[in-house]
Simulated scan of single mutants.
Amino acid sequence: MYKVFVNNTPIILSTKKSIEDYQTIPIKEADFSTIIRDILNKEAMHEEARYHLYHKKEDRLIEHLYTKLPVVVAGGGKVYNAQKEILFIKRNGKWDLPKGKVEKKEDTETAAIREVEEETGVMGLEITKFLYRSFHVFKRNGEFRLKVTYWFEMKTDYEGELVPQKEEGITKVKWKNTKKAKKALQDSYANIKLLFSHDYLS
């Protein structure tokens, strides 16, 4: 199962023929622009849109998804320091984790490390494991696009200054312990919250 987020509303992709209380559409037939607009309209009216896109083969779900919208690939990091604190950034008024677009001839691991360094000033990063791919829809130049972010767990012994990349709209960079991280997640995004749950393992 996969979740494609439009703001905080997930579109469910799965091999199940139906999910209770969800409108099921074969993914081959799904008009993403129509679905996205319906979700945004319902959100504006404080209503909930529930869409489930189906294909009997799991690998075909992603194949078809990538044909529906222009795809932007990104890399990001869930970074721990020596005190087991997690690195957060504040962007557009919400707590987030550092991430950014993969450049040409760059792999996702390299991009993830580079973006964390650029957005936070943290150095000495080492990837410890791949976490999962998140999917969310955004709009640029009047066009809906699909951002696919490859998330990596990282560690560092860096104890230097934290420097928010202001030209990217980042206003704060903070190390947060478990208690403060939970509080920050209350003012974050649904696809970031997944990184702190076990949903991405299902």
Rank of each mutant, 00 (worst) to 15 (best):
P98C: 13
I62E: 00
D31S: 10
H55R: 01
L53T: 01
G121N: 11
A44K: 11
I12T: 05
R140P: 04
V71R: 00
K179D: 15
V173F: 10
N177M: 07
I12S: 09
N92L: 08
K174F: 06
K90I: 01
R140S: 12
K99F: 11
T15P: 01
D31I: 14
D96P: 08
T178I: 09
R140L: 08
I11C: 04
T67L: 10
K84H: 14
I170L: 00
K183S: 15
V137R: 01
T128W: 13
V137H: 05
G75N: 07
L201Q: 11
I192A: 02
E143P: 11
E48C: 08
N191A: 08
E103M: 05
M45N: 12
V148W: 05
F88W: 10
L201M: 12
T9I: 09
L162F: 10
E119I: 04
G77T: 03
V122L: 05
I127S: 03
L131P: 03
G93F: 03
K183P: 05
E168C: 12
S18V: 08
V102Q: 04
H46I: 08
W175K: 02
I62V: 11
G160D: 09
V122N: 00
W95P: 00
S18W: 11
S33A: 13
R114A: 07
T9A: 06
N177D: 15
E161T: 12
F135D: 02
G75V: 09
S197T: 15
D107E: 14
W95L: 05
G75T: 01
I170S: 03
K84A: 13
I86A: 02
K78I: 14
E20G: 06
A44P: 03
Y200K: 04
V173I: 11
V6Q: 00
A112Y: 08
E20H: 13
H46A: 11
R91P: 03
I89C: 06
K57I: 10
V72N: 09
A44Q: 09
P10R: 04
I86R: 00
T149P: 02
I27C: 06
N8Y: 10
K180G: 02
E119M: 12
D157E: 13
T128D: 15
H46P: 05
Y189R: 15
E109L: 11
D107F: 06
T128M: 06
K84G: 09
K56L: 13
K182H: 13
F138Q: 00
W95V: 04
A112W: 02
L69N: 02
G93W: 07
D157N: 14
W175H: 00
K139M: 13
I12Q: 07
